[in-house]
Design a protein around this nucleic acid. Sequence first.
DNA 1: TAAATAGTGTCTATCAGACAGTATTAT
DNA 2: ATAATACTGTCTGATAGACACTATTTA
Lengths: 232, 232
Amino acid sequence: MTYTSEYPIFYVTVDAVVLTLVHEQMCALVVRRGSEPYKGAWALPGGFVEPDETLEQAARRELDEETAVPGVTRLEQLAAYGDPERDPRGRIVSVAWMAVVPSGPKVEGGSDASSAQWRPVTRLLDEEHLAFDHRQILADAVERTRSRLECTSLATAFLDEEFTVADLRRVYEVVWGAQLDPGNFHRKVTGAGFIEPTGANVQRGPGRPAAVYRHVPGADELNPPLTRSALR
Amino acid sequence: MTYTSEYPIFYVTVDAVVLTLVHEQMCALVVRRGSEPYKGAWALPGGFVEPDETLEQAARRELDEETAVPGVTRLEQLAAYGDPERDPRGRIVSVAWMAVVPSGPKVEGGSDASSAQWRPVTRLLDEEHLAFDHRQILADAVERTRSRLECTSLATAFLDEEFTVADLRRVYEVVWGAQLDPGNFHRKVTGAGFIEPTGANVQRGPGRPAAVYRHVPGADELNPPLTRSALR
DNA sequence: TAAATAGTGTCTATCAGACAGTATTAT
DNA sequence: ATAATACTGTCTGATAGACACTATTTA
């Protein structure tokens, strides 16, 4: 089938940055490109928007098809990237989305991409070569995530439904790349209103058992915010 | 000229929200639509992106062509809007931008639109009908502006190069819709590091003359932020 | 026992907000 | 003089961060 237009042809794609924690490292979901351009390079999952779907639906569909990653609840729109030179195949404007999922889901496979994989964000940004302008998109997503931890409950999205205060602290420490004072963090986060105790306790390694918490549904705004300067 | 494609046709447009203060009211720049759809309704200035320009260049060009508004320095990308039903003419994804300009520039005319005009944001949002999904875009831009006042020097963009602390306070009061304590505001804002005194004083009406300030170039981040809860 | 983690108490410096007080002008 | 605006001083309550202390477990 061929389409015609009296205006220049633009293509619209979506790309998704999905972040999680693997072994105390922030990792992003990437796929190997199986065709030119950038064949063999890592790329963010994404693809062309179809005529009758919203941009968000397109991002979800591409994530399902290329990575089959579970746990994607909220997708947040990041930005549109539309430099004329960003894709050698033509004029392609991409709308980028980001999501955060709990640690460790299996992602290999999916029909479109030969291999989807979690890779540390630091390596993707500093050492490896990402296709197109995906390095910029990833960097923007990471920065957005860092600031979202200050004023929203996004940190809980890195964790399973039940978690301890220490689990949550590790999320902040990894994402912000800073050590936090355990005592002060505990007081602040339990008083911020976005997590509530389940009543249960868990024991992991030596030390006093920790209370188990869950995210309070709907409590997504944090004020006052958790300041990023709570360093040790 | 006719273009052909084997993929469905998408069009990409840009829309711009330009905000300013007129008579103590936040106003947005809108144009009357001269053709269907939504003929005669107010719309945000914008139009189709051309093949060889960036999205930001397209936004600037459309602003020049449709409104000839001066004073647009920084354009900040807001979001992409791509609902399949948002435009009856076809599948059009629009990338929205926002800018803030000093009060009072003349804008009537321009070649494309019969009349560009400043209209109060409250009326556009609450009473009048904006074309397409421009009401949502405008609402998003206003909310973004409100939060940008907390942690950036954006408020100075509403003012001319030289201004008083009272001028700046009026910007915050109008945008946030709240009264601020003059004394506390003065201390906070002069200590925040993003404005500096020129040495001159001005007299407007009764009262002690006010010192004149200017924006410190490059000082765009505010920390600690000016909290929005500095109400009286 | 020592070591490790969980959680609480407490002190201090800082800061937001309330509000009073001083300075300088127009009318 | 009076009113109005531009600042500046001061008090109070809240909070961030440092750090000590208690509680509960493993090894």
